[in-house]
Amino acid sequence: MAQIVVQDLRKAFKVAKREAGLWNAFRGLVKREYTHVQALDGVSFEIEEGELVGYLGPNGAGKSTTIKILSGILLPDEGICQVMGRIPWQERIDHVREIGVVFGQRSQLWWDLPVIDSFELLRDIYRLSSADYRKTLEKVVDTLELTDLLEVPVRQLSLGQRMRCELAASLLHNPKLLFLDEPTIGLDAVSKLVVRDFVKTLNEEQGTTVILTTHDMDDIEALCSRVMIIGRGKILARGKLKDITREVARERRLVVELDGDYSKEYIRSQVPGAELVKLEGKQAHFDFDPARISPPELIANISARFQVRDLLIENQPIDEVISRLYGELHI
């Protein structure tokens, strides 16, 4: 059986309607009206041990609700959910002993105390033997480069440093399954790379299953073998990121640096078969469909009509592709 099995999961929330204005606030004390929000509307998937899966979707699509159900915080209204053979909310304590969760927006470290104090608290919470604890600590400190941070109060850490410590904190008990909820949010480029590298190594070397929600497409591209896209409570697409995006992003982008200034209209009239999407000074960006016009043909066309200084073919920026995908999926 797969490590995670989810079938037809449904969850609705009752949300109290709050209307603007003082009068309505008072009226709400007496009589409340509720709206019904279907956060999950029949979600099914399976995840095998050792996978690194990206879970995508716009804000409010149902990502956090799914993560909360999988981690045992929340009870679904209907559907089956089994993680490592357990029903998370029924066996909370046994379940959470084997999972790790990192919320990018929230901290689990004690704000005023050195990082090492929080780690030692976790050692007691998870009842780790001191030998196990020391071994794991040594390893995470080493790979996440925390040696100089352990004695620093958490409030003095930069966001990137803190996130590395958060990751370490959620791994001290050697979980088999790790949920990462926007772990790179707000991080600088260097910290992002460190976090990404670490997650990748963890997955490859220890075989830890990782479920990653993020809005950073570079995270997904760099890490995830498989993605699921959720929108309005339903899984709308799943598979390899490349396969999913190929549907909406058949087009490639050609960036040409021209030797001379031309108007958009003129360039458009001279290059049939490709669409000019952007003109920045001398740099022209074309989108084209390789099935309709082959790249050599297009380049030949362009160089026959313009002096070309440099050119480059790339895939369309992944963020644009995803936002187009969301558009096509109506989410």
């Binding site: 045992g72 915080i73 909370r92 304590i93 046994d94 959470v96 002993r97 969760v101 919470i125 998870y126």
Partner: peptide
Amino acid sequence: DRILLRPR
């Protein structure tokens, strides 16, 4: 939520 995620 964090409290619910701890095995205690």
